[in-house]
Design a protein around this nucleic acid. Sequence first.
DNA 1: TTAAGTGTAATAAACACAATTACAGTTTTG
DNA 2: CAAAACTGTAATTGTGTTTATTACACTTAA
Lengths: 137, 137
Amino acid sequence: MVNQQFNFAVHILTVLAVTRGVVDSQTLARSVNTNPVVVRRLLLALRAAGLIETQAGKNGGAKLARDPRRITLLQIYDAVEPRPVLALNERKAARHCFVSCNIKTVMATVAEGAETAVRKHLRGITLHRLQQKIRRG
Amino acid sequence: MVNQQFNFAVHILTVLAVTRGVVDSQTLARSVNTNPVVVRRLLLALRAAGLIETQAGKNGGAKLARDPRRITLLQIYDAVEPRPVLALNERKAARHCFVSCNIKTVMATVAEGAETAVRKHLRGITLHRLQQKIRRG
DNA sequence: TTAAGTGTAATAAACACAATTACAGTTTTG
DNA sequence: CAAAACTGTAATTGTGTTTATTACACTTAA
């Protein structure tokens, strides 16, 4: 199993969109089938991105900060996804080797292109659209 | 550090393309800065994809099976990348929850679109093109 | 026949991610 | 104002994935 944060975040926001109100982390965690603390950490990231508002204290929880038509999957992705689509090569080059010394830059360009392609795709999908798809089964 | 297999594989093939001959796993490993066994495992995958040929025994090693103009990054990606661009949600849905029960299918569609976008990008880049870029610094 | 390779299994080490526990701080409500 | 019900957050543990390493049987050129 790999990084599920994006899935979790979209799931959470979809619940908030459907509910149209304040939902607590316990309830969200049950829907996502994970731990409330995991949810709360994601909520912080989503709040920092301006997608939700949270309220502490009794009857507290989270709610959408704007219309689902104005929330794209790209915004969610940017809020929570820590990893690039294609991993960058972090390791030291072998100095004597021509290819080794230059491949990193070249591959960074490739990775950037992949990233751009994915971002473009995600930018075209709104939370509202997701809601609609779910309603239709 | 995350999955480096694609980076490793491209690096290896670039060395083979530049060298235009048989290179052993030891030498490749030094260029990539990893272990020869890791390289050999990748070589098996690349061979299975028809991109290289290997030879056992003394003076053995690997060489390209075809012209670098006819090797795309997508072929390399397919040969070695085990993971989807966006993780699928594997976990059990909460039965009582409408969103939970349907989000999986919807997100699978989203992930598929992202995958397609990346694949299209990679299909447009040949190994030969990479060589050129590296030569130019 | 020997030296220098590959192929491959088995295991260990490193790392990333998710889950859990614990508790201080906040806010509503009776 | 006190209690109940939340969030915010640190610290730790559990789990799975990826990479590295060791070992050795098998292959081939010289």
